[in-house]
């Protein structure tokens, strides 16, 4: 019984041996320095791979470099040294235009502060990634946006501006928006950092459902035990290094 369960789950070694293609994200020997008068090294020789469709969490004390790592994965920042691959394509050498396109198509972001555009309604916010892709808003895209809002349980507030929504509703809108272009990767940096317990649980159930229903690869930075213990993998960062890399 126990043996068979061990087989079912990956060992670290299996993990590395698996075909490259299965990794949607790969980081090789990443160093990151910040230059603020003096050079400070924030990340030290990070090597990581993420499987397509996996649900991962990153934990660690604040200031340990979690957000820096996530921003590197999300191509919002560039490593000082090392290589980053998304879907097998190296991103740290891409032009700004290529990166913009990659972010639009392949990556969805959710941040601690909900960052909806207050000028737009919930539905319009959800449609933005599609509009950025310069494709026409068809009936199907509208339906998809509405379906996402329904999936998130916020179809009732679809015509509300951000100011007229609760924090939880805003964050769920932000998640729906992140999913609009059906990205392979969803990156969430402390998405519930500003939410009450109920909303936090709600958001995490949704992340779990997204992972299962859409096969989206999810990486979430969190301080919340309840959340991390529900993900498939916990990566603990300490002082800019991977301290522990745990599989469920």
């Amino acid at each position: 019984m126990v043996e068979s369960q061990i087989k079912k789950l990956d060992t670290q070694e299996d993990f590395v041996k698996t075909e490259k293609k299965a990794f949607v994200i790969e980081l090789k020997n990443i160093d990151k320095f910040y230059y603020t008068g003096v050079a400070t090294q924030v990340l030290f020789d990070i090597n990581l791979q993420f499987r397509q469709g996996s649900f991962n969490s990153i934990v660690g004390p604040s200031g340990s470099g979690k957000s820096t790592l996530m921003n590197l994965i999300g191509t919002l920042d560039k490593p000082t040294k090392g290589e980053i691959y998304i879907d097998g394509k190296r991103t740290d050498k891409m032009t700004k235009k290529e990166l913009a396109e990659l972010r639009n198509k392949a990556i969805g972001f959710v941040f601690q502060f909900h960052y909806l555009l207050p000028e737009y309604t919930a539905l319009e916010n959800v449609l933005l990634p599609h509009r950025i892709s310069k494709e026409k808003i068809t009936k199907e895209t509208k339906t998809r946006a509405l379906d996402l809002l329904t999936f998130m349980g916020i179809e009732d507030v679809k015509n509300n501006l951000a100011n007229n929504m609760s924090g939880g509703q805003q964050q769920r809108t932000a998640i729906a928006r992140a999913l609009m272009n059906n990205p392979k990767i969803l990156l969430a940096d402390e998405p519930t950092g500003n939410l009450d317990t109920d909303s936090t649980d709600r958001v995490y159930d949704l992340l779990r459902d997204i992972n299962e229903d859409f096969k989206t690869t999810i990486i979430v930075i969190t301080h919340e035990r309840r959340i991390a213990e529900k993900t498939d993998r916990i990566i603990e960062i300490r002082d800019g290094r991977i301290h522990l890399d745990l599989l469920k």
């Binding site: 126990v2 369960q5 061990i6 789950l9 990956d10 060992t11 670290q12 522990l244 745990l246 599989l247 469920k248």
Partner: peptide, 21 residues
């Protein structure tokens, strides 16, 4: 049970011996 998927991790967390059963 936590070690089932991470049989090698006991070294990383500083333990000397991992008992599987």
């Amino acid at each position: 049970l936590a070690f089932m998927s991470n049989p090698e991790i006991y070294k990383k967390i500083g333990a000397d011996i991992f008992v599987e059963n």
